[in-house]
Write a protein that binds this DNA or RNA. Structure first.
Lengths: 125, 125
DNA sequence: TTCGTTGTATTATGCTTATTAATACAACGA
DNA sequence: TCGTTGTATTAATAAGCATAATACAACGAA
């Protein structure tokens, strides 16, 4: 479910953080769902448990998950499928398209950028 | 003229690089304008000359400035106001795509938004 | 209660990158 | 010639990321 790009400049703990948001946004995981235990996820990804801990702490700090010793880490409802953040992202994308148009950037260029991003980005499934 | 955020995760040399593009985009600096000498800028920003050198080298590599020993560093015409704005717009568009991806927005949705924008913008009557 | 599960905390280490430091050299123009 | 300025080099320092190895604390089930 989680996938890490070790070549990326983006820190692993941040990739995990983003993965949780992506998975929640895509509806793959939902409120109150349990995340993999730190040791388990670390094992699956072949990384150090501390790195997972760091990501989980960030998520908890931001109110996206809550953790209890002995039970595990669970999604809050802050990351429901149609969150305000998703709406914001769409809005910002629209603005970026407008601005690009304003400066005479061709549609083909935008499409090219999107497909580049697609190739470069990590897949989440 | 240049401003650095020491708290930012973005490296200083990268901030300088982006500053030059932004300044050109805003028309504050123009083609053939001279940039501050590395030692001067380093002094003003309170950083090491090598850091400025790194930024200037990147800019030169990308064809945005040209440098001559004894004379200084100057803007090329690749960074005229319009092209600088275009470069900025592309950067912002890339960021918007990344963010959209983060929240699980599908490519099809992005394409749809683009074509909507296209339809809306072409209605000239 | 015991025991496995799981989050949390700590300390040390290695690695990479960013930045600084201190010089020296080379080319340009007045 | 001499000040200005870009370039090059080598070393040292600092910060962030990740690993390693443990230990402790709380929860729930048997």
């Amino acid at each position: 479910m989680f996938q890490i790009d070790f070549a990326s400049r983006e820190p692993i703990y941040e990739q995990i953080y983003n993965s949780v948001i992506k998975l929640a946004s895509a509806g793959v995981i939902k409120s109150n769902d349990k995340l993999p235990p730190v040791r388990t996820l670390a094992g699956q990804l072949g990384i150090n448990p501390n790195t997972v801990v760091k990501a989980y702490h960030m998520l908890e700090n931001d109110g996206y998950i809550y953790s209890t010793v002995g039970r595990g880490s669970f999604l809050t409802d802050k990351l429901s499928k149609n969150s305000a953040q998703k709406i914001m992202a769409i809005k910002e994308f629209k603005e970026a398209v407008q601005k690009a148009k304003l400066f005479g950037i061709k549609i083909d260029e935008l499409l090219e950028i999107i497909s580049e991003t697609e190739r470069g980005g990590e897949s989440v499934d």
